[in-house]
Nucleic acid binder design. Structure first.
Lengths: 203, 203
DNA sequence: ACCTGAACACCGTTCAAGT
DNA sequence: ACCTGAACACCGTTCAAGT
């Protein structure tokens, strides 16, 4: 009297969830196919029934990470037709999404580099910019610049976090950046790009 | 009657040279300690006399790549006290440096992320920006934004290059970007940041 | 539909010992 | 000063076969 699901061992989604857990608890370096298999009580080879290869798995994680913290709809609509505010909101939302998982930025940027994943992050940023009325090519380029900055910045930020948690904390010689400063530095970068775009639209 | 050098098998510099060769010919993924050792006719363990570990080796490569194509002095002095032009020159020079070796951007950005390497790239960009007269913190932040953009952009550019050389070239659906377009997109990004900074200095 | 078992072809790193 | 030999503790992926 049990449904067919009773027989199933794992679905693709289970694998993804456990992978996300390992990622967040132990970092990308420790997310190996063998370790993931062990966490699922399964042989490593079993994973290849669910995913073509490791990169495809990671691309799936990247999409989940990005989609989990999309810019809240109300924040976007609150920004209204102010493209500058909306761009800032989207950038912050993406940063928050990446920060929500350990090594989130690296996961997303490696996926993006390989041309895998949904590319939703880029679309979001591009759309926000395009509200200003630039032609498509310009908006896309601006979106790309924003994305590169965001991925680079947050990667570095996350690197710093685990460096600090393990590391040479007593030294103090090089560590002028707290969490608030990081947020400020991020806003500075986004502001720079938004201002640059504004200068473009005036010219 | 031969000097003591005759007895030596390899110096640290030999290892670096051969590593750069492998990097450029076969890419970062194929630059393994075992392969490098084989190219030097040596056991893998021998490399650990010259370098503490693989990342230290790669940091050395990163420094060589960045230093090889520093912005030509004449181009910098030609820009004179125009910080906008000088910043553009430095950005282009760094791009050229990264493009001079296969996977150059990835090598430099992974080194930068780990806090290894000389950090000369960042210094150069920061110095160029600071000519505008910003305070130190602002110049450094601006340099960081530029560096993130440059590393991200060129990484993507190089990824694309080898994707094209191996890849799905017949498709044509997604490949609107030639080399000139990449250079243009790069200049666009740098211009955006420079304009953003200019807006800052006016305010 | 989902997994096992066994293998293939690799990795980076350590360390005692040699010359 | 520079290298060998041997080992340790891993990787991702494939594939025939099982249930």
């Amino acid at each position: 009297m049990s449904g067919p699901e009773t027989v199933r061992r794992h679905r693709r989604d289970d694998v993804t969830q456990v992978a996300l857990r390992i990622l967040d608890d132990h970092g990308l370096a420790d997310l190996t196919m063998r370790r993931l298999a062990a966490s699922l009580d399964v042989q490593p080879s079993a994973l290849y029934w669910h995913f073509e290869n490791k990169q495809t798995l990671i691309a799936e994680l990247a999409d989940r990470i990005v989609d989990a913290h999309l810019a809240p709809v109300d924040a976007v609509s609150e920004a209204g037709s102010d493209w500058r505010e909306r761009t800032r909101v989207e950038a912050e939302a993406l940063r928050d999404a990446l920060l929500a998982y350990r090594d989130g930025a690296e996961v997303v940027s490696s996926t993006y580099a390989l041309g895998l994943g949904s590319g939703r992050a880029l679309t979001r940023l591009t759309d926000a910019v395009s509200v200003a009325g630039f032609d498509e090519a310009t908006s896309r380029r601006a979106g790309t610049v924003l994305l590169h900055f965001i991925l680079g910045h947050v990667s570095h930020e996350q690197q710093r976090m685990q460096y600090d948690s393990v590391g040479v904390l007593a030294d103090g010689a090089t560590d002028p950046l707290g969490q608030e400063d990081q947020a400020q530095a991020f806003a500075f970068g986004v502001g720079l790009l938004v201002d640059g775009l504004a200068a473009l639209s005036v010219r």
